[in-house]
């Protein structure tokens, strides 16, 4: 008991010093289980490589420069697509959120096209634009747009009316109310939209790379399947997970902490 306690105490102190440790710790039993299943040899090694082989493969992919290059390609595609998607979606969401008529006119259409998710567009896009960057960009922009539009509209429409009244009584014009009251109030919802949009966009990108692919993480995984190297597929899967964790906890979570949570609009 005391031994376990001192181990636990050590872990708590270490985790406080290196926050990355507390993010990694939950994976330790998972990796151990994986290693154990491989060790039992329930499956042939070529079907299920062990943690150590995967680590070796990722090192060699890194060393040859394939992994960094493909990772860079995927990230640039996501960044460009997400930026374009947000640039379209946020103003559109604000407009629809503010204008009841625009809302009535577009809402059913938005819900309709939201349902035709990302990869359901791929067949027709391949016919129209072929296997290329246009198709991939379209899919990402499309996927990012809908959650951002829908959440922006929600944020604008759920503004507290007494805040608008307070601003009016303090002499604010319509435009000032939009920028000082309505938009900051909608910001937590807009950020939620971005988080969902980026998450969906990331998945859509991998799917698009698998089908369209000439480079990128999705292409790496699908190409490895052709060559029969399962360890490279697993490397791709792990990279996807790590990357999303980084985007979420290093970019999105700090933004949320600095805005909605700080203002008491979002309870943690």
């Amino acid at each position: 008991m005391t031994y376990a306690q001192s181990l636990w105490g050590m872990y708590v102190r270490w985790a406080a010093a290196w926050p990355a440790l507390s993010a990694f710790a939950p994976f330790v039993p998972l990796i151990a289980l994986w290693g154990f299943v491989v060790w039992l040899e329930l499956f042939p090694r070529v079907f299920l490589p062990g943690p150590f082989e995967v680590l070796q493969t990722s090192w060699s992919l890194l060393y040859k420069g394939i992994l960094p290059a493909y990772l860079g390609d995927s990230m640039v595609r996501l960044a460009v697509g997400a930026a374009a998607g947000m640039a379209l979606a946020i103003p559109l969401g604000i407009f629809i959120g503010l204008n009841q008529r625009a809302h009535d006119a577009t809402w059913p259409v938005l819900l309709f096209f939201q349902a035709i998710g990302d990869i359901a567009w791929l067949p027709i896009l391949l016919v129209w634009f072929g296997f290329g960057l246009t198709t991939m960009t379209f899919v990402i922009v499309y996927t990012v747009m809908f959650p951002v539009i829908l959440n922006t509209v929600l944020g604008i429409r759920s503004a507290r009316p007494e805040l608008e009244r307070a601003a009016q009584s303090l002499g604010a014009s319509r435009t000032r109310i939009l920028f000082e009251v309505t938009l900051p109030g909608a910001l937590p919802n807009i950020i939620t939209g971005l988080r969902n949009g980026l998450g969906y966009g990331w998945r859509a990108l991998i799917a698009a790379e698998i089908i369209v692919g000439t480079s990128g993480i999705g292409f790496l995984m699908f190409d490895a399947r052709r060559a029969g190297s399962v360890d490279e597929i697993v490397v791709g899967m792990i990279v996807l997970g790590i990357l999303w964790y980084i985007v979420d906890s290093w970019i999105l979570a700090p933004i949320e902490r600095a805005t909605g949570e700080r203002w008491g609009l979002v309870t943690t």
């Binding site: 507290r160 007494e162 805040l163 009244r165 307070a166 601003a167 009016q168 009584s169 303090l170 002499g171 000082e180 009251v181 900051p184 109030g185 910001l187 805005t259 203002w263 008491g264 609009l265």
Partner: peptide, 19 residues
């Protein structure tokens, strides 16, 4: 005619700008 800064309002719900 309509709301204006000549009439200051204090609300039951405070209505402070959270941001």
């Amino acid at each position: 005619k309509g709301p204006g800064p000549d009439r200051g309002v204090v609300f039951q719900s405070f209505a402070l700008f959270p941001w």
